[in-house]
Amino acid sequence: MYKNYLFDLDGTLLPMDMQNFTEHYFKSLCKKASPAIGIEPQVLINSVLGGLKAMSTNDGVENNHDVFWKAASSVCGKDLTQYSELFDDYYKNEFEYAKRATQVTPYAKKSIDYIKQHGGRLIAATNPIFPKVATYKRLEWAGVSPDDFEYITVYENSGFCKPNLKYFENICEKCKISPNDSIMVGNDVDEDLCAAKLGFDTYLVTDCIINRNDRDYSKFKHGSFESFYDFLTK
């Protein structure tokens, strides 16, 4: 066994079609927030997309939370931070609508339970573009508990995003782990397999694979989540 297990969330622990999830997310967010803020739904969507783009290139000087809200506010011309309670309420309530675009795999909880029983350390290495409340919700949708993980990357505690290798280096520093006895498990060829450059072992879960550039991943461990569980427990 490895000492440390890093798991991606969306498309890995929580199976989903990303486009379908995004559509449900924006539909419910716009219904809640657009009238309250006084901007058109597409303006709100563009603002969120602008914030996401800014986080994707964040250099760590500021955390992703601050970078997101500055960029999103710049796009729509309003200080969106004054609506923080509105967005918090959305993630606690209406965000649940997006759950219907996700599924549950029994092998997520089975894998987490097995690792815990055998003394492995668990880290939820999801791209930190969502707030803590939304990330914890999605872990619960996946049938696992946030308490299962000793560290969870969210936009409040992170200054980088995948596939920036500094994202993984930051996890190593904060959790005091070494890539050499760790494995990154995820579904994104670009964002998860890049951890191998630092010495992480990797496992590509192919049930909801994302392979934007049609890269050859045959040299990496890969297979369904069920296959990963078999690999884990053999």
Rank of each mutant, 00 (worst) to 15 (best):
W141K: 00
Y167W: 07
E140N: 06
D188Q: 07
E140H: 02
P146N: 04
F200A: 04
C172L: 09
W141D: 13
L198Q: 08
E191P: 02
A196G: 04
D192Y: 05
L193G: 07
E140C: 12
K137C: 03
Y136M: 04
K197G: 01
D192E: 09
R138Y: 09
D148P: 11
I183Q: 07
M184K: 06
W141P: 03
V189S: 03
F168N: 04
G199N: 02
Y155S: 08
G186E: 14
K162F: 11
V185G: 14
K162R: 07
C172M: 15
F200R: 02
S145I: 13
S182T: 05
C194N: 09
L198G: 03
E173H: 13
D201W: 07
S158W: 00
N170P: 00
D147I: 02
D201F: 10
G159V: 13
M184V: 15
E156G: 10
S145K: 03
A196D: 15
E150S: 09
L165F: 04
L193C: 14
V154H: 04
N187E: 07
A195V: 05
F200H: 01
L165H: 05
F200K: 01
G199H: 11
I171P: 08
E150G: 12
Y167V: 01
C175G: 04
E173T: 14
C175L: 07
E156C: 05
